[in-house]
């Protein structure tokens, strides 16, 4: 009897565990996605509809909130600013990061250790806490309240990790590649540009995503550096927008939906690259 009881428990346990696992995972995914779904559904509703029927499906042809957000607010301007700032910063990070990473990985030099330690320090120090001197420096350079104030800040924050990602990858490329090109008489810049860099696209993609997502989403630096409405990026512009339409919930949800749409859609298409890029610093 006891043997039978323990036997059944032992064989039933994995099934009940599997069931419990399913319940937890489904509940968790529901909690993760449902708020986003409600946000999108509410964007198609009038404020009255949101208050009276918060969980109901909307009339999807009712796109007035969206046209109003895109046509009557500064949201498109914030969008353009975010694209400009994120794009320029990521390009600068990749260019400067590849230069330093290439030098450290492909040329032996006594200064390499120093250079790596220098960037390692940059990786550890939170620049957020140096925002006061950065603010004064940018004012002295005449960059305050301009998009460049954000671009140089983001580049400085992103550069160290890009150097390590690029150096780590470029170091693994075989020496024979360079030597063969050298025998053919190729110059050093030519070797870097035509032989080595075409092979380095995967780490560039990782470094780009790792930096693009936090830059696109950042709020703190624009809050401190940017005053003029026409130069605000999306997260900061969103706070202005939310302040203007506090009582019009349809507009608020439409604004949030439009702000969240590009990165969410990009994530759904490129989820593997996003996950790899955003966890790159924490996964060896």
């Amino acid at each position: 009897m006891t043997a039978l009881a323990s036997d059944t428990r032992a064989s039933r346990q994995p099934i009940s565990f599997a069931l419990l696992a399913q319940v937890i995972l489904i509940a968790n995914s529901f909690i993760m996605l449902y708020p986003v779904v409600v946000m999108v559904l509410s964007a198609f509703k009038t404020t009255g509809e949101i208050f009276d029927h918060p969980f109901a499906l909307p009339d999807f042809t009712q796109v007035g909130n969206f046209t109003k957000v895109l046509g009557e607010t500064e949201m498109p301007t914030y969008f353009m600013n975010s694209i400009l700032v994120t794009g320029t910063s990521v390009i600068l990070i990749l260019v400067l990061g590849t230069m330093a990473g290439y030098a450290v990985a492909r040329y032996e030099s006594r200064t390499n250790t120093f250079i790596l330690l220098f960037f390692l320090a940059g990786l550890m120090l939170p620049l957020k806490l140096a925002v006061i001197p950065l603010f004064i420096l940018l004012r002295d350079l005449g960059l305050l309240d301009s998009r460049w104030s954000l671009i140089v800040t983001y580049t400085a924050i992103g550069l160290p990790s890009a150097v390590f990602i690029m150096a780590g990858f470029l170091r693994t490329l075989p020496l024979e590649l360079e030597d063969a090109a050298r025998i053919d008489g190729a110059s050093e810049p030519r070797i870097m540009w035509s032989v080595m860099l075409p092979l380095a696209r995967p780490p560039m993609a990782i470094a780009a995503i790792q930096n693009a997502v936090p830059i696109w989403n950042d709020f703190f630096f624009p809050l401190v550096f940017i005053q003029t409405d026409e130069r605000k990026t999306l997260p900061q512009g969103l706070t202005t927008f939310m302040g203007e339409y506090t009582t019009d919930w349809g507009m608020l949800f439409a604004g949030l939906t439009i702000a969240a749409a590009p990165i969410t859609l990009l994530y759904i298409v490129l989820s593997r690259q996003f996950i790899q890029g955003m966890t790159a610093g924490a996964v060896k």
């Binding site: 996605l33 989403n217 709020f219 969103l238 759904i268």
Partner: peptide, 14 residues
Amino acid sequence: RIAVFVPVVLSTII
């Protein structure tokens, strides 16, 4: 796995 990471890509402001 994809669902649990959706909020991570959103801006903290959103």
